[in-house]
Design a protein around this nucleic acid. Structure first.
Length: 458
RNA sequence: GUGAUUGUAGCUCAGCUGGUUAGAGCGCCGGAUUGUGGUUCCGGAGGUCGCCGGUUCGAAACCGGUCUUUCACCCCA
């Protein structure tokens, strides 16, 4: 046997069953997106490197798949540069394109490029694969789908409320009960950093804080100290580590803590607006939880921050996330366009639904009727009947080869096909069909019209 | 990028401290049974033991490298 073929690390093939299940999730999300007034767009799989590089931080740049230039790409590279073995600089010379890393940056590019044709506020959704040169592990792949919905051109907090509802609507529809939508606001984080006098260390501070539930109080304190945050400052944030109570209670505590910070106070106000609205309107199956430790790595969030975690009995990283970015299009030259958006991680949602056996209602596309093939004349006779059945939307097929009946019936069994039609010389003479129910084993003789009636009604 | 882990037939896996021709179950193909399946019985095909190198009289097994799988960290969906 030849060398077994393989696919690259972190990529997957999908079987008919898996595709059916994935489509079910796609379809559900798409439906909710459209119900909420979002319109679909698509962008290319790869972008100019300059569009992507530098937008996701140092870590992100490392994870971007670069596409080698075509042609004799080394020819133009300076000899000294090659000898220097400087990967970073050489890469920019031999690669000018890169695979999409997420859907938000390409969207920002899209908005700037098509700003004259877009009606603002622009609500778009996008469900496409993205690629990351990550080491794969549980729920982490190198090719995966994101399903994003974003609104640009509005600072309204109502949008932030709607995204919470949208999350709730999708997961409820998928029967995924008990998800937690975590909510925070970047202004709160800035406010805290300001209050403790470490405003310039905001990023380090938030990254450390984000790890609270993973490495605990001690770990966070240690990491903050390592990043140069003063002991005094850490003492001041300590109360946040054991932040308990209802969302309203947390808001009240925050308000007090951040009273001397203009930005922090604004953050509390924004959060309170969303929390109050949701409490007023209600959620179907999700929980809304204020979480001040929620930071998320992406540098461009400026307001609301969302993250969705699966029901508590499932061990899985976040299945969705998002937030507000006041100036994302700014890097592409369009100022003062605020955007807020969320993302669903299709592949992780799939894993969660699979683990909880929530795919039971997903039907595999399969034929309902199989015509056995007993010879050339019989097949011709069957093909005529097939034409009519298919006209009536009955999923049906003819076994392609005149194989043994045992083999053909076995095929029907394997594919769990409900009906088999048997046509031999006697049926042809009488212009009839023998219809066999594969579950009960019962058979009946019928004419073409009856065949259509029976198979369309059952 | 760091640290572990995995790889034997199409699939799931056995294979002892290195020792004849590497096994099982399931699946596949054929027959019992030329127009009636899921059961049963019989037979058959299918493996450079991930790849490359090393140690050895001898390697699926030991050593090194590499790729792959899975997992944790980092980061993230």
């Amino acid at each position: 046997m030849a060398q077994k073929p393989s696919i690259p690390k972190g990529t997957r093939d999908f079987s008919p069953t898996e595709v059916a299940k994935r489509n079910y999730i796609f379809f559900t999300i798409k439906q909710v997106f459209e119900t909420y007034g979002f319109q679909p767009i698509e962008t290319p799989s790869f972008e100019n490197s300059s569009t992507l590089m530098g937008k996701y931080g140092e870590e992100g740049d490392r994870l971007i798949f670069k596409i080698l230039n075509s042609g004799d790409y080394l020819k133009k590279v300076d000899e000294a540069l090659l000898v220097s073995k400087n990967s970073l600089q050489t890469t920019s010379k031999i690669s000018e394109k890169a695979l999409r890393y997420d859907l938000t940056v390409p969207f920002a590019r899209y908005v700037v490029q098509h700003q004259n044709d877009i009606v603002f506020p622009f609500k778009r959704y996008q469900m496409q694969p993205v690629w990351r040169a990550d080491r794969p592990q549980k729920g982490r792949f190198r090719e995966f789908y994101q399903c994003d919905a974003d609104v640009v051109g509005s600072k309204s907090l109502w949008q932030e409320v709607e995204f919470v509802q949208l999350y709730d609507a999708v997961f409820s529809k998928l029967k995924l009960i008990g998800t937690t939508i975590k909510l925070n606001n970047r202004k709160i984080l800035s406010g805290i950093a300001e209050i403790i006098g470490e405003k310039d260390k905001l990023i380090d501070f938030t990254i450390a804080l984000d790890k609270l539930d993973k490495i605990g109080e001690e770990g966070v304190a240690k990491e903050m100290l390592a990043k140069g945050i003063s002991e005094n400052a850490i003492k001041k944030v300590k109360p946040l580590f054991s932040f308990k109570g209802s969302n309203q209670e947390k808001l009240n505590q925050l308000q007090e803590l951040l009273a001397n910070s203009v930005e922090g106070t604004q953050g509390v106000h924004d959060l309170r607006f969303v929390v109050n609205a949701i409490e007023n309107l209600g959620l179907q199956s999700a929980n809304l939880e204020l979480d001040v430790t929620l930071a998320r790595g992406l540098n461009y969030y400026t307001g609301a921050i969302y993250e969705v975690s699966a029901p508590k009995n499932v061990k899985m990283g976040s299945i969705g996330g998002g937030g507000r970015y006041d100036d994302l299009t700014g890097i592409f030259g369009l100022k003062n366009v605020s955007g807020v958006g969320i993302s669903f991680g299709l592949d992780r949602i799939y894993l969660v639904l699979e683990e909880l056996n929530l795919f039971d209602q997903v039907e595999l596309p399969k034929p309902k009727v199989l015509f056995l093939n007993l010879g050339e004349q019989e097949a011709t006779y069957c093909m005529k009947a097939l034409l009519k059945l298919r006209k009536h939307q009955v999923k049906s097929e003819l076994y392609p080869d005149a194989s043994k009946m045992k083999k053909q019936l076995n095929y029907a069994n394997r594919r769990a096909i409900q009906f088999v039609v048997i046509v031999g010389t006697s049926e042809m003479e009488n212009k009839k069909f023998t219809l066999k129910n594969m579950q009960s084993g019962e058979q009946q003789t019928c004419n073409l019209q009856e065949l259509v009636d029976i198979t369309t009604s059952l």
